[in-house]
Amino acid sequence: MTVKPDITWADFEKIDIRCGTIIAVNDFEKARNPSYQLEIDFGDLGIRKSSAQITTLYEKEELVGKQILAVVNFPKKQIANFFSECLVLGVYGEDKKDVTLISPSLPTKNGMQLG
């Protein structure tokens, strides 16, 4: 496994990772790879949308109410007819198709920042 190049502390401080709760999940039929469209409540930051390729390990129903971590300071990215407003974080499986979402171990207020 290759480790990526070193970054500085200042580089890391530019990344805004927040906790949010998934409030809606829909199939994303126009995506190239099987994906869901998520709506995530980030508290004071509002509700943001994201496309996530997490269909192999998660059913839509089990995702609603789940807290996750996401990068919220990327520019919007258009995927087919959808604009993704944040990047949900997860850990790849060995085949890079299975993604396990990263979640806080205890309930957390939406919008709280990773520290």
Rank of each mutant, 00 (worst) to 15 (best):
residue 76 K to M: 12
residue 100 T to F: 12
residue 85 E to K: 00
residue 27 D to A: 14
residue 76 K to N: 13
residue 12 F to Q: 07
residue 35 S to F: 02
residue 46 G to Y: 08
residue 1 M to F: 12
residue 50 S to M: 01
residue 110 N to Y: 13
residue 60 K to W: 06
residue 87 L to R: 04
residue 58 Y to W: 07
residue 2 T to N: 12
residue 63 L to M: 10
residue 84 S to Y: 08
residue 57 L to S: 02
residue 75 P to G: 10
residue 76 K to A: 12
residue 28 F to I: 03
residue 59 E to P: 01
residue 93 G to T: 00
residue 41 D to S: 06
residue 91 V to K: 12
residue 55 T to Q: 09
residue 28 F to H: 11
residue 63 L to P: 02
residue 9 W to Y: 13
residue 99 V to Y: 03
residue 99 V to P: 13
residue 32 R to L: 12
residue 68 I to F: 10
residue 77 K to S: 14
residue 14 K to E: 14
residue 111 G to F: 12
residue 21 T to F: 06
residue 40 I to K: 00
residue 44 D to G: 00
residue 32 R to P: 08
residue 13 E to N: 11
residue 58 Y to N: 04
residue 42 F to Y: 14
residue 92 Y to Q: 09
residue 10 A to L: 07
residue 104 P to G: 09
residue 19 C to G: 03
residue 108 T to V: 15
residue 3 V to Q: 07
residue 41 D to Q: 06
residue 94 E to K: 09
residue 71 V to G: 08
residue 98 D to F: 11
residue 46 G to L: 06
residue 68 I to G: 08
residue 56 T to R: 15
residue 76 K to D: 14
residue 97 K to W: 10
residue 53 Q to N: 06
residue 103 S to Q: 15
residue 87 L to T: 14
residue 35 S to V: 02
residue 58 Y to T: 02
residue 45 L to S: 11
residue 108 T to G: 00
residue 93 G to Q: 05
residue 12 F to H: 01
residue 56 T to F: 09
residue 12 F to I: 08
residue 40 I to W: 04
residue 44 D to Y: 07
residue 78 Q to H: 04
residue 23 I to S: 11
residue 93 G to E: 12
residue 107 P to Q: 09
residue 48 R to V: 10
residue 105 S to Q: 14
residue 80 A to G: 04
